[in-house]
Lab assay of single mutants.
Amino acid sequence: NLRWTSEAKTKLKNIPFFARSQAKARIEQLARQAEQDIVTPELVEQARLEFG
């Protein structure tokens, strides 16, 4: 299971509600691909840039 830093959680809250669950799934996918067990603000930002 993935842990989220408080900064990453804050960044996730800045994503519009309607896109948040999809973004969260993508962020967690990116973390797993990078073999990380902690979601960082950088991963959230990477996903945000993908979504535009």
Rank of each mutant, 00 (worst) to 15 (best):
Lys13Leu: 14
Gln36Ser: 12
Arg32Ile: 10
Gln46Val: 09
Gln33Arg: 11
Ala34Ile: 10
Leu49Thr: 08
Arg3Asn: 05
Glu42Ser: 06
Phe18Asp: 05
Glu45Ala: 08
Lys11Pro: 00
Asn14His: 10
Leu12Pro: 00
Leu2Phe: 06
Ile27Leu: 02
Ile38Tyr: 09
Asn1Ala: 13
Gln29Thr: 08
Ala31Val: 05
Ile27Asp: 00
Asn1Gly: 13
Trp4Tyr: 02
Ser6Ile: 11
Glu45Arg: 06
Ala8Glu: 00
Trp4Cys: 01
Phe17Arg: 14
Glu7Asp: 08
Arg3Thr: 13
Ala19Val: 14
Ala47Lys: 01
Glu42Ala: 08
Thr40Met: 04
Gln36Val: 14
Arg20Pro: 02
Ala19Ser: 10
Ala31Ile: 02
Lys9Asn: 06
Lys9Ile: 15
Leu2Ala: 03
Leu49Glu: 08
Ala25Ile: 12
Gly52Arg: 13
Glu7Thr: 07
Glu7Asn: 05
Phe18Ile: 08
Ala23Val: 15
Arg32Gly: 03
Arg48Pro: 02
Gln46Phe: 09
Gln46Leu: 13
Lys9Thr: 11
Pro16Thr: 03
Leu49Trp: 09
Gln29Phe: 13
Ala23Pro: 00
Gln29Val: 08
Gln29Met: 11
Trp4Phe: 01
Arg32Tyr: 07
Ala8Met: 01
Asn1Phe: 13
Arg48Lys: 09
Ile38Asn: 04
Arg48Ile: 15
Gln46Asn: 04
Ser21His: 11
Glu42Thr: 05
Glu42Val: 05
Ala23Tyr: 11
Thr5Glu: 04
Pro16Ile: 04
Trp4Lys: 00
Ala25Gly: 05
Gln33Ser: 09
Asn1Val: 12
Asn1Tyr: 12
Glu28Tyr: 03
Thr5Ile: 02
Pro41Ile: 13
Thr40Leu: 04
Gln22Leu: 14
Lys13Thr: 07
Leu12Ala: 02
Gln22Cys: 14
Glu7Ser: 08
Glu7Cys: 07
Arg26Met: 09
Gln46Ser: 07
Lys24Trp: 04
Glu50Ala: 08
Lys11His: 10
Pro41Phe: 05
Trp4Ser: 00
Glu7Val: 06
Gln46Asp: 04
Phe17Lys: 14
Val39Gly: 00
Ala47Asn: 03
Arg48Ala: 13
Thr40Lys: 03
Arg20Cys: 06
Phe51Val: 07
Ala47Tyr: 15
Glu42Gln: 09
Leu49Tyr: 09
Gln22Asp: 07
Lys13Arg: 12
Gly52His: 14
Ala34Ser: 11
Gln46Gly: 03
Arg26Trp: 13
Leu12Thr: 02
Pro16Gly: 03
Ala31Arg: 01
Glu35Val: 06
Gln22Ser: 09
Gln29Glu: 12
Thr5Met: 07
Glu50Trp: 09
Gln36Phe: 10
Lys11Tyr: 11
Ala19Pro: 03
Ala31His: 00
Gln29Tyr: 11
Glu42Gly: 05
Ile38Arg: 05
Thr40Arg: 04
Arg32Ser: 05
Glu28Leu: 05
Asn14Ala: 11
Leu43His: 06
Glu50Tyr: 10
Thr10Leu: 15
Leu43Val: 04
Glu35Leu: 13
Pro41Met: 08
Gln33Ile: 11
Val44Glu: 00
Arg20Met: 05
Leu43Met: 13
Val44Cys: 03
Leu49Gly: 06
Arg32Val: 08
Lys24Phe: 09
Ile15Pro: 03
Arg26Ala: 06
Gly52Asn: 14
Lys24Glu: 05
Ala19Gly: 07
Ala19Phe: 15
Thr40Ser: 05
Leu43Asn: 03
Ala19Lys: 12
Val44Gly: 00
Ile27Val: 10
Glu50Pro: 05
Arg32Leu: 10
Glu50Gln: 10
Ser21Gly: 11
Ile38Val: 12
Thr5Cys: 04
Arg48Asn: 06
Ala34Met: 15
